[in-house]
Design a protein around this nucleic acid. Structure first.
Lengths: 206, 206
DNA sequence: GTTGACTTGTTCTATAAATGTTCTATATTT
DNA sequence: AAATATAGAACATTTATAGAACAAGTCAAC
């Protein structure tokens, strides 16, 4: 959290974070007074100066309309950090094929979780009955446990990676293939290692 | 945003961006004064000079009608803005259900085209055989033509919107349902209006 | 060509208004 | 009492503008 601000300072700072991008030009102190219900330009200046001291607002040396948030915080606000690493390819029944240097991909927030995630590209049609087609990108949250019914990246016998719905019972793990003509596969719990859980999927038709 | 311009500088710069292409020749300072409501050529010169200092206008050393924008800013216009409007919901056989105020969604570049695009959310399982499930987001490029085999948003009889593969023959348009148990539907070309082409798809499992 | 009026960019000074800055005084809260 | 918040006055600087003077090019008339 930001270095202890007073109530008013926090209020003004919140307002700036929220509304500064909406102005065509940064507002004057008087305009800020109107917006926040002050009537003294001098008072507003004092508050702004405190925010400058706190390193949250760029120092504005006599510049008119010079109020800008520190770059530190614009990044934190705009949080345009939607990039996740694209780690390789996954095809049912084969190990994950990692690529040398993972490239970053944009992944919108709804398609990922707050936890660490990565992206794989699907090879083959083994999951087509689940709506995951050849060439799709899948977003995987990195974790080693899952709830029943989730689709997981599972490593079987330390060699084969698959993307399947998981069902865990005492002493048994069942992987349900998407294709309904194929029967579920039963394993001992120590034969199956969960590498991640499917949280998002993307496809390009171009 | 451009390196902090004053209010007037921004106004003049915006005017130039907007209107410079409309002049047969770049305007003189006096013409700019007329256009922007100044009466002093000297004042206008001072403002233009500030824009030159800021790197937004080409330096014009005594040239007549020498005002030109720097190429710098064309790049800034094409800014890295991955946001597309989420316009509403599409369910097979019903009109598109528009929402009041479209919200913006992040859409990674591979899932969209260079042309204007928008996002719809799918309702129902009518496209599940194509790997498009209930709740998926689809990215649509706004255009009224398509190539055979593309998936389009088609408006049939001005009332029903569907997402289907299109096949266009002379005098006939065929819409192929994803579900193979259903038979293709044949229409007159003027019964079908193409509203866009599917270019991307996203799904959240959370 | 040369001349001279005209246009146009450039530089300068002066002025008014807007706006940031600093200060003092007073209330309010803790 | 100390910290916080506010108002308002006084001051300083920036911004915007006008207008004069000058230089350099343009163009028509001779």
């Amino acid at each position: 959290m930001t270095p202890s601000l007073t109530r008013r300072q926090q209020e003004i700072y919140d307002y700036l974070k929220e509304n500064l991008p909406l102005y065509e030009q940064p507002p004057t102190l008087n305009e800020l007074c109107d917006a926040l219900g002050l009537s003294s330009r001098g008072s507003m200046h004092k508050q702004i100066h405190a925010l400058i001291e706190a390193g949250l607002v760029e120092p504005m040396n006599n510049q008119r309309r010079g109020i800008r948030l520190t770059s530190f915080d614009t990044t934190e606000t705009a949080a345009n950090d939607n990039q996740l690493p694209m780690m390789g390819y996954i095809a049912a029944g084969r190990p994950i094929e990692a690529i040398e240097t993972p490239e970053n991909m944009d992944v919108p927030p709804p398609l990922r979780s707050e936890k660490p995630c990565y992206v794989l590209q699907v090879k083959g049609d083994s999951m087509s009955d689940e709506g995951i087609l050849d060439g799709d990108w899948v977003v995987i949250e990195q974790k080693d446990t899952a709830r029943n019914g989730e689709i997981v990246v599972a490593l079987v016998e330390n060699s084969d990676a698959t993307l399947k719905r998981i069902e865990q019972k005492p002493g048994e793990v069942i992987l349900h293939p998407a294709n309904e003509t194929m029967s579920p596969m039963h394993y001992q719990p120590d034969q199956v290692k969960i590498q991640g859980v499917l949280v998002g999927q993307m496809r390009s038709y171009r």
